[in-house]
Design a binder for these strands. Structure first.
Lengths: 202, 202
DNA sequence: GCAAAAGTGTTAATTCTACACCCATGG
DNA sequence: CCATGGGTGTAGAATTAACACTTTTGC
């Protein structure tokens, strides 16, 4: 029986400057050896924390798929990480996904990860993991825009997102410069929640 | 570095008696050793054909995800197979997924595969691989119903499916018993095609 | 002529889209 | 008082959902 070398490969997403970015090391997605481990999820977490030195915290982590090379098999995970929870120094290694998706070897993986992420934000609350505990609707909208790569109508976005009942107001206000203060919201649950297609009529 | 034994595990779907069924061997999903191989997709095809003795043909095959056990790693694929292309003898090993999803060890995998399939039929033409070349709209509807596990309105279903422009009439008629003959259709493409959200206005 | 499955339209409800102005604040 | 970003409503279009009767055929 053939035994390949097994690695966990990570697509670590974060948003800075309103751009969806991915962590690269030497122009490749970071990689870690798979050691004997109770589960692949735990192995991915371990590599993120031990090897890349980023805490998982309440970030979202999910398996993407597995890809084979001549003598190597990579189980790919993607991770969503709020940029405030990443050390400044590390943030320099994050690159706008659109640029890298043309150049690097792992381009196909990155493109697929973005596709998966785009689907996922449509029917879950998964963006919570790219945002701080509290945020304004504008921040949330910019997050969606960065992921989808298109701009959204402010009024329609607010109507839609509020109708999903995933958010609750924190009654706090955020001042940005000298503008009107914005109401702040938080996710009711900071864990993966699927959007109800049929709203419970309350 | 730890090297696990690598297997390909298959969730082979087919529809008989208007039920979505899955192939089991000894109450488990069939398994094959991963040999050195140009790609995982090819390895899955090889195992399907050599080990389980079912031709892939133009059936749909896609990687689902990878799951680890203490000394074994299984890369799971799912396959959609039209029952006419399966030998009668083999069909006896197919079991209604709803029943097995409670009993067998691989239940979680089967449930996830069904979920993936349900999503996939909503926005692609992937059901082509569960149907013969030509079929009636009723057959198509029953296929959807078997997968979704709910019944659909005949008129709405026909309107919707025809508006997607995935089908073309073959101008043939199918007689079933002594009822009115039904018009037969085929898929324009028997390969994965995503549904256009924005219809080209023609 | 009747059993069996095919085929067909309309209406109301809902959701989606496009679109522009006033508000609260700090400087 | 003005620059900045926050906040809000409506009308038309498109989509979805609910619903029942007529047609064609073989026997």
């Amino acid at each position: 029986m053939w035994k390949a070398e097994l690695f966990i490969k990570l697509v670590i997403f974060s948003i800075t400057d309103n751009k969806l970015k991915v962590l690269l090391k030497d122009n490749r997605l970071p990689l870690g050896e798979l050691e004997e481990s109770p589960s692949l999820d735990k192995a991915a977490k371990r590599i993120l924390e031990k090897k890349i030195d980023i805490r998982l915290g309440d970030s979202f982590l999910e398996q993407l798929y597995t890809v084979s090379y001549p003598d190597e098999i990579d189980i790919v995970y993607y991770i969503l990480k709020h940029s405030d929870s990443i050390p400044k120094e590390k943030l320099k290694s994050f690159f706008s996904w659109e640029k890298i998706a043309k150049n690097i070897k792992d381009a196909e993986i990155v493109r697929y990860a973005v596709q998966r992420l785009r689907w996922k934000i449509e029917y879950t609350n998964v963006v919570y993991s790219l945002l701080p505990q509290e945020f304004t609707l504008s921040q949330l909208q910019k997050t969606y825009e960065a992921i989808l790569g298109e701009s959204l109508d402010k009024r329609n976005f607010r109507k839609k997102i509020l109708s999903l009942k995933l958010l609750k107001s924190t009654r706090h206000k955020k001042m940005i410069g000298r503008a009107r203060p914005a109401e702040m919201f938080s996710f009711r649950k900071r864990e993966l929640t699927f959007v109800k297609i049929l709203q419970p009529t309350d």
